[in-house]
């Protein structure tokens, strides 16, 4: 049926919620076993190693996207963090004044254009 995108999204969201509810219902009917929290499963699964081999269970959040940050875009991030967002007011000022210069240049070019055309 042809709908406008907003209504279509709302209907599809309704379908999402409805299907999720139905799936949950089917799941709770089909699954008869209770949640098992026996001793065997209490610790995280570390391929057979005991938890004590690790100093911490979780990963520090800054290593979460190591591959994305250091693998893919190391140069980009180096530029963004060390050069651009250096925290030094004057280095920010360079970027800002370039932008101000750009806006002034647009204004100047426009004015020159108009005046040359004899406005």
């Amino acid at each position: 049926m042809f709908l406008d995108p907003l209504t279509a999204t709302l209907i599809l969201s309704g379908v999402l919620a409805f299907t999720a509810l139905i799936t949950w219902f089917i799941y709770s009917v089909v699954k008869s076993n209770p949640t098992n929290v026996s001793e065997e499963f209490k610790e995280p699964y570390l391929a057979g190693e005991p938890t004590s081999t690790l100093s911490r269970i979780d990963a520090p959040s800054n290593t979460l996207f190591w591959g994305f940050i250091y693998g893919l875009s190391r140069k980009l991030y180096h530029y963004l963090r060390e050069r651009m967002h250096s925290g030094i007011l004057n280095e920010w000022g360079e970027y800002m004044s370039v932008y101000l210069g750009l806006l002034s240049l647009i204004g100047l070019l426009f004015t020159a254009l108009i005046l040359l055309r004899g406005g």
């Binding site: 967002h85 920010w92 970027y95 800002m96 370039v98 932008y99 101000l100 806006l103 002034s104 647009i106 204004g107 100047l108 426009f110 004015t111 108009i114 005046l115 406005g119």
Partner: peptide, 28 residues
């Protein structure tokens, strides 16, 4: 000259407003 005035005013106002709204490169 109205063209000059508009150009100057628009350039300066826009710089100020993008500073307030933190648009690159006025976001630092």
């Amino acid at each position: 000259n109205p063209y000059v005035a508009s150009a100057v005013a628009l350039a300066l106002a826009l710089w100020a407003f993008t500073y307030k709204s933190a648009a690159f490169p006025n976001h630092f």
